[in-house]
């Protein structure tokens, strides 16, 4: 277990460095930010002036070194547009995103696990198909269409729920449902398939033969083993979500989250914010994945025994 943890740690570090470097050079390739930050129609003289002012006149290599220095002295620079420290800008966006992410994950688990199990054990019954149909709907429509639809029904016409920002618990309902819809669909399918995989296994038959109640067989033996697959999917989904899957939802509900920040920074070429934001998200995802990896190893006895290549 220890050697696996070390391997995971090493992998995390390498991944992180690769991303840091890629992000830096990718941003430099997409155009000079001055044209976006200051607006159109600059004279060439003024343009040169501002390029110097934003310290974009050095070579890429010099800029890269200055950028790496940020990791040592903690100074990641100022936003080109907001002119305040990028760490401050990104930090303010993380908590609202995380709140939305957690509430969407909670809803997803509560809905998707029972639906998936139901769909698996009632595979030949209409309830199984119905469970899949419910799950399917969430994955069948672009989430912004769903979001606007929910807004029109529950806010515009019925006037039950608010739509702007994250001030109260009520504000969470529509964005959470929108965000969870796609996740529920994915997780239900994976749960169903993972359950189907284990339902046919020998140990299930053994458990039944031992006279254990069906409920216990499914929940304890079935779900425990299917859990390995499900866990990996949750890991991927959390990552996908934290990684700007929520851009659309944040934009529509004026949610002050990080996905919205990243896309806007990318479009406006606010490199310092973009770099730090991507790196912050990447770091979070890497940590989550490492945790899932370790949990995965813990959950799968064969891997626990240390057959890691």
């Amino acid at each position: 277990m220890l050697s696996r943890s070390l391997t995971v740690l090493a992998r995390m570090t390498v991944t992180f460095l690769v991303i840091v470097t890629l992000v830096f050079f990718a941003t430099r390739m997409t155009g000079n930010p001055v044209d976006f930050v200051v607006g159109e129609g600059l004279t060439s003289e003024d343009r040169a002036l501002l390029i110097r002012y934003f310290e974009l006149d050095g070579s890429w290599w010099a800029q890269y070194r200055a950028f790496l220095r940020g990791f040592i002295d903690g100074n990641f620079g100022l936003s080109f547009i907001e002119r305040r420290p990028v760490a401050e800008i990104v930090a303010a966006r993380i908590w609202p995103s995380l709140q939305l992410l957690l509430s969407a994950m909670a809803l997803t688990l509560v809905v998707a696990l029972p639906l998936g199990i139901l769909a698996a054990i009632r595979r030949d019954h209409w309830t199984g198909s119905a469970a899949m149909a419910v799950a399917f709907l969430g994955y069948a429509v672009p989430n912004f269409v769903l979001a606007v639809f929910l807004i029109l029904v529950f806010a515009y016409w019925l006037n039950w729920l608010p739509v702007v920002g994250n001030a109260t618990a009520l504000h969470f309902i529509l964005p959470t449902v929108t965000l969870a819809a796609g996740l529920i669909a994915a997780l239900t399918r994976f749960t169903r398939n993972a359950m189907l995989d284990v339902l046919g296994q020998d140990y299930m038959r053994t458990a039944r033969a031992k006279g254990l109640p069906e409920r216990r067989v499914i929940l304890h033996h079935g779900l425990r083993n299917a859990g390995i697959t499900i866990l990996s999917v949750i890991g991927l989904q959390v990552a996908g979500l934290a990684a700007a899957g929520s851009v659309v939802v944040e934009s529509i509900f004026a949610w002050p989250g990080i996905g919205d920040l990243l896309v806007r920074s990318a479009i406006r070429r606010d490199y310092p914010v973009l770099q730090f934001g991507v790196i912050a998200v990447a770091a979070a995802v890497i940590v989550i994945n490492a945790a899932v990896d370790l949990a995965y190893a813990w959950a799968d006895p064969r891997l626990r025994r240390g057959t890691l290549a």
Partner: peptide
């Protein structure tokens, strides 16, 4: 080989795909 591939996978997972798409399309 596995380490390299999985490193690429990890990097890909960790960076928002929307942003990657955005970069590529803008570039």
């Amino acid at each position: 080989v596995e380490a390299a591939v999985m490193g690429a996978v990890d990097a890909q997972i960790a960076v928002p795909f929307t942003l990657i798409a955005l970069f590529v399309l803008v570039l």
